[in-house]
Structures are given as structure tokens and as C-alpha cells.
Design a protein around this nucleic acid. Structure first.
Lengths: 134, 134
DNA sequence: TGTAACGGTCTCAAAAAGAGAGCAGCACTA
DNA sequence: TAGTGCTGCTCTCTTTTTGAGACCGTTACA
């Protein structure tokens, strides 16, 4: 493995942290990763990293999310402390979602991963084509 | 947002890339993220980043994965080009899984995210406790 | 002869996600 | 003043995904 970037000892520690325990409650890393790892969570965090959005705006922005999953995912992100939800007493009331400091801090490594995906999607595409050809 | 680390222009580009198109086929970034984002994929990539493992070893290492999901996740990781599967003609045949170059390159940003989770799991725990208290 | 390990597949039940109707409150229009 | 639309949801129903666990053929070893 690449020792220049990743030190083996700490890597082993993380790896052990992820595999320790028989259930999620026993493994903090997997517990946190689970909240980040959802189908819609990264997308919404990426969107909110740009600027705060209202419920309806997010819905129009991500046309293929169901209202149910948008509500639910935002609720989970709020619970985990990544997203702040603010209700404005307009008529009808509008609700704005924004990233918290914790959310912005999590955005940085997430962004690295998304950037990797952007740079390497062609390689993944090719790998799939080669694999499916057999 | 933090302009020191993330340039707004490229961030907007990524964000647009993630929200473009009505389905996955139209959005390469989400398409790739989907393969990385599975419930078990990050865990298996972390494990294989340490060293190659055989099927049974992975099963013992991650006791709460079902055999079905282990087979399926490894198959998907192999299809996307992150994992190499090698069969040795022993009796009975043994199968070794290892990370490819693409897999190792993806491991780096993934590791950043896992590291973030390790450093911040206490903050997430607290956020949840506060949220649930209301 | 019987049992165990290897790396799976198959079936069935449970959980999660998607589609879409319904809802209460207010503003605006006809 | 009746109708329509916008807000941010929740509820129900159907489809997809995941989980639990039995089964499988081959081979080694007791």
C-alpha cells in the first residue's frame, strides 16, 4: 500500500474500528458512515454546501427524489447535526435548510470522494463494459 | 463557504454534475457514487486495503454480513473495477480478493471520509442526543 | 462412513424505498 | 364568495432491496 499518503498503523486502527463489534451500536465509525452513506444524503449535502435551500427548491433541484425520501433524509441529516432547519413565519410558512459547521466539516472529505468519482467515472464505465463482455 | 480549500466554481460544477439528468444513466457522478455508497462496500474496501483476503476470511472478519450480501457486494466491486478476484486451484478451490489500482486510488478519498467519521463520531452522537431530547 | 471446510446459490420473510393521494392554512383571482 | 394554487409535509400501497438460513458438490481427514 501507499505509505506516502496513508500510514499503515492508523489505517489498521480505522479498519479495526470499522470491523469491531457485532452490531452498529458497537461501532461508532460504521454508525456515522451509515448516516453519510445513504442514497440521497451525499447529494443533498453537496447541494446545501452551495447555499441554503428551501424544501420545494430542493425538490425541484433533485427531480427524481420522492417527497417522502426528501423529508426523511433531511430529517436524518438534521438529527445527525449536519443540517440546520429553520422555519420562517411567512404565509404559508417556508422552511430553509442549511449546512451546520459540522456539516461543512464533513463536506470536505465527502467532496474529495465526489471529485474522485468525477475524475474516474470513465474508468469505472470501462471496467463494467469489460466485465459484462465475458 | 470555505474558499481556501474548495474553489466555488469547481464545486458548482460537481454539484451540477450530480443533479443533472433525470436518471442515473444521465449522471456519471451519482452512478459511480452509487457503487461506492453501498451499505457494505466501504467496509470491504477498507478491509481489502489492508491486505488481500479470501472469501471465508472476510466473512469471519465482518461477522454481521450475510453470505449473500458478501457475494453480491464483492461481485459489484469487481464489476466496477475496484476488486480483483483470483481463484486458486487448491482442493477445495480457494478464492482471493484484492484491491486493483483503481480500488487503491478510490481508497484514498474514502479513507479521508472514514477518518472524519472516526474523529467526529462523538459530535454526531451528541447532536443525536440533543435532537432526540426535544 | 461421517463430518467439516471451501465458496458459493436459492428461497422466503422483513425492511426500506418509490409513487402518489391527501391535508391544513392562507393568498389571490374570478 | 367560491375556486385555485402554493407551502411543507404525512399516509397508504406497491415494488425493490436486504437479511436469515437451508442447500450444494467437491475434497480432506478422522
Amino acid at each position: 500500500m501507499d505509505g506516502k499518503i496513508v500510514n499503515l498503523k492508523s489505517k489498521l486502527e480505522i479498519y479495526k474500528a470499522m470491523t469491531a463489534g457485532a452490531n452498529f451500536a458497537d461501532c461508532p465509525v460504521r454508525d456515522v458512515m451509515r448516516g453519510i452513506n445513504g442514497k440521497w444524503s451525499p447529494l443533498l449535502v453537496m447541494a446545501l454546501a452551495e447555499k441554503p435551500y428551501r424544501f420545494g427548491e430542493l425538490r425541484r433541484l433533485v427531480p427524481d427524489i420522492s417527497q417522502r425520501m426528501l423529508t426523511q433524509t433531511l430529517h436524518e441529516l438534521q438529527r445527525d447535526g449536519y443540517v440546520h432547519r429553520e422555519v420562517f413565519p411567512t404565509k404559508p410558512p417556508s422552511v430553509e435548510y442549511s449546512l451546520t459547521d459540522l456539516g461543512r466539516s464533513m463536506f470536505h472529505p465527502l467532496y474529495q470522494l465526489v471529485q474522485w468519482a468525477e475524475l474516474n467515472h470513465e474508468a469505472v464505465r470501462e471496467a463494467r463494459a469489460t466485465f459484462d463482455a465475458d
